[in-house]
Structures are given as structure tokens and as C-alpha cells.
């Protein structure tokens, strides 16, 4: 899932202090699981902003709301009239939600309430760890299910650097060396020899280096377009 963290209230106040009508709008999927931006957190953020406004002696109308998923218009568009009554929307979704809302709800500024952090796992309640880089060209079958792209601080593909110390990374004794984990895992799986093959330079074009990425599943996209056209025709009738 996508893991995010709330921006500090000081930073939020800095971006919002000149607006009069604000809606804090949450997303009840990933960022709700990481206790950062669901309906509950949106409500708390709205309260904190109201307190701050009162402390500053500023008059502000701050509402809050949420939808199931800000990454799909059908979930937030039912609230469009509420959005239109605001000066600004503070989205506590991940950056995907902020981007999509910005493009769909007209000339209404949509500001980020979170810092979108990473694609993470929840190994235990309250702990979130980065385990996938979303590089668009997965190599996990070659590395024992441990991602060298984000779990190795240097994204090395051919084995550990010289910085491993007692199984930890040179950047911190708190960070596991991914290549230490990979080697140990591959030994257990009896597939260590897979690591002996030289991995050539990676094509980063499938990652962010290739520009904005887009995937179109044509038969589904076409179906949707047809249904929209049909609906338009019916409305015209």
C-alpha cells in the first residue's frame, strides 16, 4: 500500500492561513491504514486547524469529509458541490489523490495534507516499511523476494557493496543490508547460484526516469468509452 505521513500543523497553517473556507478531505484506503489521512485523521486535522485559527484570531470555516478512494473520480465526484463551496481543499490522500482531485474538480486549489512516503508493508501494527520501488521491471524472482532497488541504499543489482557491517547497511546500524538478507534467503531456498549471473545495466526507462508512466488496458478503456457515449446519446434523446 501507499504509506504517508501527516505534514506538521505548522506547515499546513503556512499554506492555508490566507483562506477562509477550507475542506479537509480524507481517503479511506491506504492512508487510513497508516493512520495518516483517513476520515478520522481528516476530522482531527480539521479540528487542529480550527484551534489554530482561534489562537490566531482568524475567522475560518473548516469542514471535513472523506471518500473511499481519492484515486478514482467516481468516489469523490459525488462531493463536488461541497468542494465548490470552498476556497481550498486540503486532501489527506496520498499524492495520487491530490493530483487527481486537482484535475477533476475545476479551478479549486487542492493542497497536500500528507507527505506521501513510499510503497510499504505493515509487518506489525504501527510499523511501516518500504519494500518496493515501483521500478516497472521487477527482479524479485532473482533476489529471493527482497527488493534490491529500494531495500539496498545503493540499488545495487549484482551483490553487496563493501559497506555491510554485521548484516547492517553502512547508512545506519538500524537498517538491514538488503544484500545480506538476499544472500541468506537464497541460501535457504537453495537458489544461491542465481546470484552468480551478472545482471546487466538496468533499463530505468520503466521507472520514473522514463517520464510519467501510463498503462492502458484497451478493451476495458474502450468499453468504458462506449458506455459513456451511449449514456450521452441517451441523455440527448
Amino acid at each position: 500500500m501507499i504509506v504517508g505521513q501527516q505534514k506538521p500543523i505548522e506547515e499546513l497553517w503556512g499554506m492555508l492561513k490566507d483562506f477562509k473556507k477550507i475542506m479537509v478531505f480524507g481517503c479511506n484506503t491506504c492512508v487510513a491504514v497508516c493512520h495518516a489521512g483517513g476520515a478520522k485523521e481528516a476530522e482531527i486535522t480539521a479540528s487542529l486547524l480550527r484551534i489554530r485559527a482561534a489562537e490566531e484570531g482568524v475567522e475560518m470555516n473548516i469542514e471535513h469529509g472523506a471518500c473511499e478512494r481519492q484515486c478514482e473520480p467516481e468516489f469523490f465526484m459525488p462531493s463536488i458541490e461541497k468542494f465548490k463551496a470552498q476556497d481550498v481543499i486540503l486532501s489527506t490522500a496520498c499524492g495520487v489523490g491530490v493530483n487527481l482531485m486537482s484535475s477533476q474538480i475545476g479551478d479549486m486549489p487542492v493542497y497536500p495534507g500528507l507527505n506521501t512516503s513510499f510503497y510499504g508493508a505493515v509487518p506489525q501494527a504501527g510499523v511501516f516499511t518500504e519494500v518496493c520501488g515501483g521500478c516497472g521491471n521487477c527482479v524479485l524472482h532473482l533476489t529471493g523476494g527482497i527488493c534490491p532497488i529500494v531495500r539496498c541504499s545503493k540499488s545495487l543489482l549484482n551483490g553487496p557493496c563493501g559497506g555491510t557491517n554485521n548484516g547492517k547497511c553502512e547508512i545506519s546500524s538500524e537498517v538491514d543490508c538488503a544484500w545480506y538478507l538476499i544472500v541468506e534467503r537464497m541460501k535457504k531456498l537453495g537458489t544461491l547460484e542465481k546470484l552468480f549471473e551478472i545482471q546487466p545495466p538496468k533499463n530505468w526507462g520503466t521507472a520514473t526516469a522514463g517520464g510519467p508512466r501510463k498503462i492502458v488496458i484497451e478493451h476495458i478503456a474502450e468499453l468504458e468509452e462506449k458506455e459513456e457515449n451511449k449514456a450521452t446519446v441517451e441523455v440527448k434523446k
Binding site: P160, G162, G167, L192
Partner: peptide, 15 residues
């Protein structure tokens, strides 16, 4: 370069 005694040590010759 080579770190012969770095962890994981049994992989270092292959590295």
C-alpha cells in the same frame, strides 16, 4: 575493489 571479509562472507568470493 573487493571486501573479502565483509558480510555475507561466503558470498564475497562470488562477488
Amino acid at each position: 575493489t573487493w571486501t573479502p571479509m565483509g558480510d555475507p562472507m561466503d558470498f564475497r568470493p562470488y562477488n
